Amino acid sequence: NQASVVANQLIPINTALTLVMMRSEVVTPVGIPADDIPRLVSMQVNRAVPLGTTLMPDMVKGYP
């Protein structure tokens, strides 16, 4: 099973992602692959992302 990117904390709308905000976890449904975490750094979320939420491609501005 492939690990996905999961919010490690509440991420407010328009926040630029940092490594501490994300963790990898095997979840269903599958979200953004954990391998993409380095690419996500400094990209902004377009909505508030609660703790434990799987990051989906449509939540991150400019992804992929």
Rank of each mutant, 00 (worst) to 15 (best):
N1D: 15
N1I: 15
A3N: 15
A3T: 14
S4I: 02
V6C: 04
N8H: 13
N8W: 04
N8E: 06
N8K: 09
Q9G: 07
Q9W: 06
Q9A: 11
Q9N: 09
L10P: 11
L10E: 14
L10H: 13
I11C: 03
I11L: 10
I11R: 00
I11E: 02
I11P: 01
P12R: 06
P12C: 09
I13W: 11
I13D: 08
I13S: 11
I13H: 10
N14Q: 08
N14S: 08
A16E: 07
A16K: 09
L17W: 00
L19N: 07
V20L: 12
V20E: 11
M21E: 03
M22N: 02
M22D: 03
R23V: 12
R23D: 07
S24Q: 14
E25Y: 05
E25V: 10
E25I: 05
E25C: 05
V26K: 04
V26E: 15
V26F: 15
T28I: 06
P29V: 09
P29R: 03
P29H: 06
V30S: 13
G31P: 00
G31H: 01
G31V: 01
I32E: 02
I32T: 00
I32K: 00
I32R: 01
I32F: 03
P33L: 11
A34C: 06
A34W: 08
D35M: 14
D36Y: 13
V41S: 03
V41H: 04
V41E: 05
S42W: 07
S42N: 07
S42T: 10
S42Q: 12
M43N: 05
Q44I: 11
Q44Y: 11
Q44M: 13
V45C: 05
V45D: 02
V45G: 00
N46F: 06
N46L: 14
N46D: 13
R47S: 11
L51I: 14
L51R: 06
L51E: 12
L51V: 11
G52V: 02
T53G: 11
T53H: 14
M56Y: 10
M56V: 10
M56L: 12
P57H: 15
P57E: 08
P57Q: 11
D58M: 10
M59G: 03
V60H: 01
V60W: 00
V60S: 00
K61G: 05
K61Y: 08
K61P: 10
K61S: 13
K61D: 10
Y63I: 04
